[in-house]
């Protein structure tokens, strides 16, 4: 079994990656290795979190994030309860704070929250004592997605150092982009952001620390942006952006910013094509590329389960990994 060495003092909540250290990232990567090994067993079940309750609280629709948190909890033998806005008292007007306190009172050890408002995970974490994982808040952060993206890069390229990563798409409205920027800057990556200026204002990058570790630049021309990239991350474009005046048409967007086989050739040989999903085939990425050999979109989903197992485990089992708890049940 892989040895796990989480940092001695682990975070209470995972709300964003702004305050993650390189050591935090490395320990998530190593713990994920152990979780991945469990996922490859015939019987994918370990008693690590037996008796613990995880509640997923989703105010937005989600397939992969919600299912992978649920699957992650179940493999670790936790009890997982799913709450959605439509099926709960939220639809009767209960506030986020009251909902959080109610879930805590039922015995939640971790609340995993997805919410359309930036900062909602912070608000919840301030009002409950249990651990909180942010599974996406507005445009702000989606830390487990960024961690699974880092894990997927590390798995494929066998390194996290000296990366050139190009993010293409709706950066302005993307929590995935924001969390990836924090994670990638932390490992010293050269990051290039590419989108129409309406979705990527010049001052966007001034928000991020420029302390000599990695770099963050904007390139509006996609053909230049993908040049020599190790990784291309396409971001989801919500089709409503056109109606709100940010884009003339999806057709024009595709013509100028879609990742196509031809544009892929401008990147480094062996470039990885990533997408957090769900994909608008033929908009962000040309349809044939979704199943292309460069695409790791499916691996991202698989790794999503393992990374979320690691996060749940590290929050609840804490700093002292119990090797027996990861053995067969």
């Amino acid at each position: 079994m892989t040895t796990i060495t989480p940092t001695s003092k682990w975070h209470k909540n995972i709300l964003d990656l702004d305050n993650f250290t390189r050591a935090d990232i490395d320990s998530v990567m190593q713990t994920t290795d152990a979780m991945k090994e469990i996922m490859q067993r015939d019987i994918r079940k370990v008693p690590a979190l037996r008796g613990k309750t995880i509640i997923t609280l989703f105010y937005e629709a989600s397939t992969r994030t919600r299912v992978s948190f649920e699957q992650a909890g179940k493999i670790l033998s936790a009890d997982v309860i799913n709450v959605t806005a439509q099926s709960s008292s939220i639809s009767k007007g209960e506030s986020l704070i009251d909902t959080g306190k109610t879930l805590q009172a039922t015995g939640a050890d971790i609340i995993v929250i997805r919410h359309p408002s930036s900062g909602a995970a912070y608000l919840l974490a301030q009002n409950v004592n249990c651990n909180v994982i942010n599974a996406g808040d507005g445009w702000h952060a989606h830390p487990s997605q960024a961690l699974l993206d880092l894990y997927t890069i590390r798995e494929k390229l066998k390194r996290l150092d000296n990366l050139k990563v190009t993010l293409v798409g709706d950066v302005l409205h993307s929590r995935v982009a924001r969390s990836n920027i924090w994670g990638l800057l932390n490992v010293g990556a050269e990051i290039v952001l590419c989108a129409p200026p309406t979705l990527l204002p010049k001052i966007f990058i001034e928000a991020y620390p420029h302390n000599g570790k990695g770099s963050l630049t904007i390139e509006y021309d996609v053909n230049k942006a993908v040049k020599d990239a190790d990784v291309i991350m396409a971001l989801r474009l919500q089709t409503e952006r056109q109606q709100s005046g940010l884009l003339p048409s999806l057709g024009e967007y595709s013509e100028r910013w879609q990742i196509t086989p031809k544009r892929l050739e401008l990147a480094k040989p062996g470039v990885m094509l990533m997408h957090p999903g769900p994909v608008n085939r033929g908009v962000e990425v040309s349809s044939e590329l979704v199943e292309h050999e460069s695409s790791v979109i499916e691996e991202q989903v698989k790794n999503g389960v393992a990374v979320r197992m690691a996060l749940l485990y590290m929050l609840l089992a804490g700093s002292k990994p119990n090797e027996t708890s990861l053995a067969h049940s």
Partner: peptide, 10 residues
């Protein structure tokens, strides 16, 4: 509207 608003996603 500022670098801070972009960072916070507000």
């Amino acid at each position: 509207e500022s670098p801070t608003s972009y960072r916070l996603g507000l």
